[in-house]
Design a protein around this nucleic acid. Sequence first.
RNA 1: GCGAGAGUGGCGGAACUGGCAGACGCACUGGACUUAGGAUCCAGCGGGCAACCAUGGGGGUUCAACUCCCCCCUCUCGCACCA
Length: 840
Amino acid sequence: MTVKYDPKEIESKWQRYWEEHKTFRVNEDSVRHKYYCLEMFPYPSGRIHMGHVRNYAIGDVIARYKTMRGYNVLHPMGWDAFGLPAENAAIEKGVHPVSWTYNNIAYMKDQLRKMGLSYDWDREIATCDPVYYRWNQWFFLKMHERGLAYRRRSNVNWCVSCETVLANEQVIDGRCWRCSSIVEQKYLDQWFFKITDYAEELLSGCDRLTGWPERVLTMQRNWIGKSIGVEVDFPITDSEKSIRIFTTRPDTLHGATFMSLAPEHPIIEELISGAKKEPEVRSFIERIKHQDRIVRTAADVEKEGIFTGRYAINPVSREKIPIWVANFVLMEYGTGAIMAVPAHDQRDFEFAKKYNLQSRVVIQNHEGTLSEETMSGAYLEEGILVNSGEFNGLDSATAMEKIAEYIESQGIGKRTVNYKIRDWGISRQRYWGTPIPVIYCEKCGVVPVAEKDLPVVLPGDVTFTGKGGSPLLQAGDFISTICPSCGRTARRETDTMDTFVDSSLYFLRYCSPGVDNTPFVKQSASYWMNVDQYIGGIEHAVLHLLYARFFTKVTRDLGLIDVAEPFENLLTQGMVIKDGAKMSKSKGNVVDPDILIGTYGADTARLFSLFASPPEKDLDWSDRGVEGAFRFLSRVYRKVAEMSPYLDPKQNPDASDMASYKIILLDIESELPSDLKRLRKTVHQTIKKVTDDIEVFHFNTAISFIMELVNNIYLIPIEGRTGEKAFLYVMKEALDSLTLLLSPFAPHISEEMWHMLGYEPTIAKAAWPIYCTEISQEEESLIVIQINGKVRSKITVPAGTPEDEIKNKAMSDEKIKGLIGEKAPKKVFVVKEKLVNIVI
RNA sequence: GCGAGAGUGGCGGAACUGGCAGACGCACUGGACUUAGGAUCCAGCGGGCAACCAUGGGGGUUCAACUCCCCCCUCUCGCACCA
């Protein structure tokens, strides 16, 4: 009789069971240790893809494993539901974003359900729900009160295709992070979150995030871009004014032989106005300003500049130096002006060379060989100060300090810290997002919406044309309102928030979803937060993950939570690759999860995506490999089905004592036949190895150990032994353990087998198996015998044999004796339980 | 250019703190069972007839190196005129 593994039937059966019994619902329980396992929630684009399957399979193993280890596990799921695709669908297909989004959610939720993921669906959230996004607005108001949300007119990144503004982080290589269109600059009134106030803490916090991958931390540190230096004023000749520069190299101050200004620097107007050079400089500036920003900031673009005709005084050397305008100087960084030290800065070196400007060595190398005439590049190393007046002879590190002190004592500058990170521009000129809760009144100006009036709900009746900016601009009823302060008619803000605001809070909201008088219940958040394990793609290394950290710190400063960091441990899973490229529609190499699950079942899909590669590495998809995973599950199922009539008391009245097999095995341990003894040993070793590997997320090797166990179970013949009690006890232990070990990876089949083995559901709440060290211990060790590092023989010795005895046995081994003859070995190395190396 | 990671059979990948390189799976080969096998079970499977040779290449340390050190090559990712 062959039993067929039918995943379709098994999986829908157990999915229904879990749903009906609310198996994965959790509540706060102060007695138990909590574990918050979170995967990045998806954008409801329509259907899940293999990246989601992998991400959620990983998270589910962790959540299920921790549950079986006795933790009270919070494992929620929701929808990052605001965003452009919904609005584009409205423009292209005439479907309202609300129905488009909720239809997608319904479909994708069903897909996730079919994956058998252990979510507490009672905590589901959708960020486009006013019940959710009112708290975005509430946080906005709180931040506005604290000066952390402010409005400013500025040059912003404008995506022509999305017709909206982008934050700096959202511009990748000069292109939109979402649609890859070229990003232009536009001068607009925008709302910003003052993330720069937290730059230092966001940076120093990186050091404490020991559970994060180093490369993510590096990317964040890089993005924040802290540099310590000094600001110095350079007086302009024939003027009362001076130009302030920022430098990280105050030790080279005496070597500043000219200055370079950003083309946007406001002082230029004054410097050139009325002068002979005015038209020439003006046309240069105009040309550079129109240059593409990406082109202009690319490192390999040729340095260009123009002399303004004016001079400044180097405040330490008192020398008169020319003021230039240069394309590579950025207005947004530092003060928009630099002192140029050609001898010790490569950019200045190239610039000076091109325009034949003076250069002066002020840091001499230790050989004393540097000279302006012979240098082929800037000297950037440390050295001894020369040509620097009273500072001559100091080493550059000391000079750095001394000159900074001197500048401060003279009142011509100060030590400062600069960051590359800019404030987070959150205004988006789009409909499908959280309305920014602000009202503009002719009399009162910018007035925040009163807390009691939240949420500001998106109007439903808008038309989507794709032209003329945000659809909200046409929503008259939405726009016209009354000023909360003076009562006159006023106008509502029509910009909506960046959707990254939504994902900066959701992990907090999961702690107490649905509450309507507070963003989250403080008590719940203090129980669950922070997230013990967060899992998602690397692409959010500096976007979502930085914003979420920022929001968490603000939330803490508002007194709402105690934690400073949202995510204790971060796992960034690799991409899913097929035929050498990332799976994507444009490459045409996608595997549809629906078809995959429809053909082989969710357990196979999960098992393969966990087995094929370690989670943080890219996963090479293989249809053959999927079949292999399916074959393995079938093989497991067949064995359990074969044994179940003998092991399940419901099917076999003689098996009523099976429940106490653990105790019985203790008594008969020493009488077991050797093949059963061997199997027991393997079972206990496997429990240990699988447990250890799950702990460090080595799911691929954990699964391979389970496979080995199955191979070993198959090696025990069953013919004629079904009446043998000892055989049944050992089999029971093996199959029970196997089923439990497999259950986080392939939960449906495990649930079914658990039932076949005579247990009541659900295996999800069963205890993780424990191994017995004594049983798992090998009685014999295999010792490899090497001569000069080459394997020559192998012997087995009882475990724990002392070193000198192992050595003697090795030396008297026939093969070895034959090879070394009568010669006495030079030296013999013995590694306990492992090997002997004889050096001759 | 700078920083991080990686390079192991035909393929995906194993290898603890330096101790049998290639676990496990895929593919392949053979056998068994069978009317049949593309199901299943069992076995073999880096190269070489062998001594031996093999973890991107070259050197080094060591009794012993995928693992540690130095040089070089290739790939992936991130940053990139940030003063």
